[in-house]
Simulated assay, not measured.
Amino acid sequence: MEELKRMHYEAVKSYVSETMHAKKRKGFYYKVIELAGFEAYERDYDEEGDTYDWLKHFLLADCETLVSWVEYHADKLKFDYMKRLYLNRFSKSPVDYVDKEATYNAYTLFKKMNIRVCPYCEHEFLDVVSVNHGMQTKRTVEFDHFYPKGDEDYPGLAMCFYNLIPSCKPCNQLKMTNPVAANPYNPDIENLTNLCPDIPVGINIDDLSEADCKIKINPIGSMIVNESTLALEQRYDSQTSVAYQLLKCKQDFDDDKLLELERLGIGTVSELKREIFGKPRDEARGFELHTKMKYDLIGY
């Protein structure tokens, strides 16, 4: 994460310091230092002595800071310097770049993130693919703005790192300018849902049908808004049979059964789990679909 943030800042800094017109750069500085957290910065812009620490502070503001700015300083986020950069360079095409060295754009950031699954839903894959016999590069990944970049919303945050969420097209289209409240970058987000069917504890899975294993998202706190906006529970209807099979396997191969198989020399418990249930979540997360659902269902 630290390397991603460094790369993002350095690329935008390259644009601001070397490409942005001096008058606009000065105007950008004055807009930024109106926000909370910039009280110590000089009120007069020193172009020759600019270290761009203000830019780093702004671009890499954490989730809590973004929440505070949106809640208390929304009127100060109407400037469009970064929205133009997002539209004209960062997200325009595979061959348009933010920095003068032509190394950084949305495609670069996604590749460096090294994930293949949408963090909003974990229900869709994200890809950058070559089409037309390798003549074109296209992506199924969008960079959603957690806080919308519309002129009447928060255009000033268009290039803030924690406001750029890699997203599948279905999530991005469902969200648009509709609200979400739980940011995937928030380290506590995993604790805000429990993806399990509404079935009695300890019931014999053989007494159930697949239809009984419809996944419930069970959101709490800020995830209630995300679930409603992104229709997560409805989209997980397709996973009913998968949930049933996972619960059936967990019942048929509980810990005692796995230990028995290990004693018989068939394999170690960890080897047997991998063969029966696939990769554990710490390996599969970000690369396989529905790993949280699997973990919530069977603890693996």
Rank of each mutant, 00 (worst) to 15 (best):
L4R: 01
E10V: 01
Y15T: 06
T19K: 09
K23T: 15
K24M: 10
K31M: 10
G37D: 07
F38G: 02
Y41N: 09
Y45Q: 09
E48L: 10
H57G: 01
F58Y: 14
A61K: 09
D62T: 04
C63W: 06
T65E: 08
S68Y: 11
S68N: 15
F79N: 05
F79Q: 07
Y81N: 11
L85D: 06
L87N: 13
K92P: 06
K92Y: 15
V95G: 09
V98W: 06
M113W: 01
N114I: 05
Y120D: 04
E124T: 05
G134Q: 07
G150C: 09
D151F: 14
L157C: 12
A158Y: 00
N163P: 06
P166A: 06
P170G: 07
L174Y: 06
Y185L: 00
N191R: 12
L192Y: 10
N194H: 14
D206N: 13
L208R: 02
I217F: 09
I217V: 15
V225P: 04
E227Y: 05
T240H: 08
V242Y: 15
Y244G: 04
Q245N: 13
K250Y: 12
Q251N: 00
R263I: 10
T268R: 07
S270D: 13
L272G: 02
G278V: 00
G278A: 04
F287V: 12
K292D: 07
I298F: 00
